Simulated scan of single mutants.
Amino acid sequence: MSTIPETPLYDRAGSIRGYRMNKMAMSLGIPANREAFKADEAAFLDSHGLSEAEKTAVMTRDWHEMVALGGNLFFILKISAIDPTPMTRIGAAQAGMDHDLFLQQRLGKL
């Protein structure tokens, strides 16, 4: 199997590793959970049993680290909807690029 450097592979191991974070993110589809998340993120994340690394990644909106910790992009997008964070910002973070440069180079937008 070939790998792409610095690209986390979302496989069975990643799914297991990110289970708590993904389950928490999926729960944000429920309005009461979104309100609880907005009211006290740390307590909400603790209630889902997230590790310190997972909590830090979520609370700092470190999209790249969330994926590295086993986060599934489809679930992470539920977190991004809270702020809201445009999907292009997540793409730029994944590529390690400035958002404006990402828009220009990857999407041809000035």
Rank of each mutant, 00 (worst) to 15 (best):
L101I: 13
E6Y: 10
T7H: 11
M26C: 05
G71T: 02
P31V: 11
R89M: 07
A57V: 04
P5E: 13
E65S: 05
L107W: 08
N22I: 04
L28Y: 07
R17W: 01
I30Y: 09
G18D: 02
I79P: 05
G49Q: 13
P5K: 14
V58Q: 11
M66P: 04
S51R: 10
A25L: 14
I4S: 09
W63P: 02
G49D: 12
M59I: 03
E54S: 07
D100T: 11
T56D: 14
N72K: 14
E54A: 12
F102D: 05
S51N: 09
D83V: 01
A53K: 14
T88V: 12
A92K: 06
A25Y: 03
L9I: 14
A68C: 03
L77N: 15
Y10D: 00
A36N: 12
S15M: 09
N72C: 10
T56A: 15
M59F: 00
L77G: 15
A68L: 04
L50H: 07
D100L: 12
F44E: 00
Y19L: 12
P84L: 07
M21S: 03
Q105A: 10
A36V: 03
A25D: 04
M21K: 02
M26P: 00
L101R: 15
L45G: 00
D83H: 06
G96Y: 09
L103C: 14
S51C: 09
Q94C: 13
L101A: 14
A43L: 10
A95L: 12
M24V: 02
R17Y: 01
T3L: 15
D46I: 00
A81V: 01
M66G: 03
A36I: 06
F44I: 00
I82Y: 02
G108T: 08
A32C: 06
A42N: 11
Q105K: 15
T85S: 07
